[in-house]
Design a protein around this nucleic acid. Structure first.
Length: 573
RNA sequence: GGACCCGUAGCCUAGCGGAUAGGGCACUUCCCUCCUAAGGAAGGGGUCGUGGGUUCGAUUCCCACCGGGUCCGCCA
């Protein structure tokens, strides 16, 4: 069902003899700076070169030539812009009935057959998930949902970094100082229990440098599949994974596939051979194997150690090939922090040089670092903001807020609402700014429930739902929208109509913040409308119904939007 | 030394070649006999890091510089 924006794009496209396609026109539409100038603006700058006329001339020509749809009252050229004045009844009818009809699928595009894998979270099994993972998971989940809405078949993947020297460090500390304790006996969440030994290792290693040697010996034993070492590794990894799964469940992260580095790190031999054959993998003076990338403006990358043991990239070489071949992917996306920008450039260049057809289908979704007031997160020193603690802390804050408003609320209801509100605060905070920007996390200020926040949008939704509950089962069929005349209603409708385009844009550019921005604007517009125009006390029955329909449509859009950000819309707050 | 990212009001942030630079926090002043005040209305606060250049037009593109960050490991 086309909306009025599509209609406008269509008539412009037709008038331009389709030199610009409807979708291209649609993407160019913007809002004039003030309402007096119109509701939708079409800038003509891009057409100047195409038609060899000034933008103003083109706008003028279009204003006379364009065949206006019913949703448009008039179109005026204003310098280089063509401004459209919308017909209130028509757009209300069109947009609201479309949203009510499509319901939960409003904003979703039809399937495009593209298979995309999104790898995110990627924890290390030597320590619990921290603040950085919360940003990673928030972005990862939102991008998965956005791509799904855009019509892709999405496979959510988690790569568990479960081998390597860092894992051996917590293992060594446990063997030396653990005295056979278990998480249960220590009364700790199992991933926190293991993390304690990683911190302990680093503390002890500062005094006893020989520990480093011992950790490396342990890695060699592990690679040689030494029974006792493997047994310890398995035990500790099980503990950690059990803890992770609990955190993921709490936070709402989910995965279709779990990959383990331990299963892929030694499967890169054929690729290493291929690289040698192609002549750009070669051994250096110390005996390590390097991918020679200096001709491509990149530093060389070590592919395997002199003693033949594997390093991190070995795993990615084998795993990526497996991903594309086994899952028949059209695209593979890695959600990984910006500190690995160079690493991914090198990795992708190696795929290209190895000659894989899918080399160009790899995307690194890079996001900025999360800093604390004291500096960067440093898990080695135990300076972390632990994910579980943050979730619990925000939950507690939310709980207090709910309790302030509802003194006699039932316990289960209180905890459900607090959980939803707390998570919304964290996730929206992580998503509302462009991913590449660094984030400075100040626990007290960062996660607020007022202003541009997840809870603000949830609150707006809850207010809308509260009205709808009061209205009971008023029929909203066959409304004419002749009464819904206010500017506030019109503004709101215009924003609701932009939702599908915002979803598309967010998905295409892997930028959840674009959708966040629209949801904020929509919530603001609704709250303005809410204050100016009482719904249940409307002057006439017809007006009341029309307002109710608008409230219903707004609630639907907010709910759909939040869902794409992996945030729950709650009925009452 | 080299590469990349970020500098927009006290703080956070959108816009990234075009119409008066949008928001939020904090601050000032109003609004709960009225559908949830986690809200709304109004107000003050900006040389869009600095200096050049390209352009009819630059917060947006290019160059230099200055701040801040990251990476350049036989760590992951």
């Amino acid at each position: 069902m086309p909306g009025f924006r599509e209609e406008i794009a269509k008539v412009i496209s037709l008038s331009l003899k389709e030199r610009l396609k409807q979708d291209e026109v649609l993407a160019l539409l913007e809002s004039p700076p003030s309402a007096e100038m119109g509701d939708i603006a079409f800038p003509c700058f891009k057409l100047a070169a195409l038609f060899k006329k000034s933008p103003a001339e083109i706008a003028k020509h279009l204003s006379q030539d364009v065949k206006l749809p019913a949703s448009v009252e008039k179109a005026e050229a204003a310098g280089p812009y063509l401004n459209f004045f919308l017909q209130k009844e028509s757009i209300a009818k069109q947009a609201i009935s479309r949203i009510l009809k499509e319901g939960a699928s409003y904003g979703k595009l039809k399937a495009n057959g593209k298979r995309v894998m999104v790898e995110y979270s990627a924890p290390n099994t030597n320590k619990p998930l921290h603040l950085g993972h919360l940003r990673n998971d928030s972005i990862g989940m939102a991008v998965c949902k956005l791509l799904e809405a855009a019509g892709c078949k999405v496979i959510k993947a988690n790569l568990v970094n479960d081998r390597g020297i860092h894992i051996c460090k917590s293992m060594l500390a446990y063997r030396l100082f653990g005295k056979g304790k278990t998480p249960a006996r220590a009364g700790l969440k199992p991933d926190h229990f293991v993390g304690k030994y990683y911190v302990l290792y680093n503390k002890k290693a500062a005094e006893k440098p020989e520990l480093e040697m011992q950790a490396y010996e342990m890695l060699t034993l592990w690679e040689a599949k030494d029974r006792k070492t493997i047994a310890l590794w398995k035990k500790m990894n099980e503990w950690v994974l059990k803890g992770f799964k609990e955190t993921y469940k709490n936070f709402g992260s989910s995965f279709d596939h779990w990959f383990f580095e331990s299963e892929f790190y030694d499967r890169a031999k054929p690729l290493v051979e291929l690289g040698k054959q192609k002549g750009f993998f070669s051994v250096n003076d110390e005996g390590a194997l390097l991918a020679r990338l200096e001709n491509y403006g990149l530093p060389d990358k070590t592919v395997s150690r002199a003693d033949g043991t594997s390093i991190y990239i070995t795993n990615d070489l084998a795993l990526t090939r497996h991903k594309f071949e086994h899952f028949m992917l059209d695209e593979s996306i890695w959600v990984v922090g910006s500190e690995q920008n160079l690493y991914f450039k090198q990795l992708f260049k190696i795929f290209e040089l190895l000659g894989f057809a899918w080399a160009g289908k790899c995307r690194h979704l890079s996001y900025g670092m999360v800093f604390l007031p004291s500096g960067k997160l440093k898990s080695r020193e135990g300076i972390v903001v632990d994910a579980d603690n943050i979730i619990a802390e925000v939950n507690c804050l939310a709980s207090k807020e709910v309790l302030k408003r509802h003194k006699k609320i039932k316990k289960t209801e209180l905890s459900n609402r607090a959980r939803a509100v707390g998570l919304a605060a964290i996730k929206f905070y992580m998503l509302k700014t462009a991913a590449q920007k660094d984030l400075h996390f100040r626990p007290r200020e960062s996660i607020s429930f007022e202003g541009e926040t997840g809870p603000y949008i949830q609150y707006t939704y809850a207010r809308a739902k509260s009205i709808l509950r009061k209205a009971k089962k008023t029929s909203l069929q066959n409304l004419l929208f002749t009464q819904l005349q206010s500017d506030e209603a019109k503004n709101l409708i215009k924003l609701l109509a932009q939702f599908p385009e915002a979803v598309q844009k967010s998905a295409d550019s892997l930028s959840p913040h674009i959708l966040c921005q629209l949801l904020i604007e929509t919530a603001e517009a609704f709250n303005t409308f809410y204050h100016r125009h009482p719904v249940m006390q409307a002057e006439s029955v017809e007006l009341k119904k029309e307002r109710l329909a608008l409230v219903q449509a707004t609630a639907q859009v907010l709910k759909n939007g939040l869902a794409l950000l992996n945030i729950e819309a709650i009925e009452r707050m």
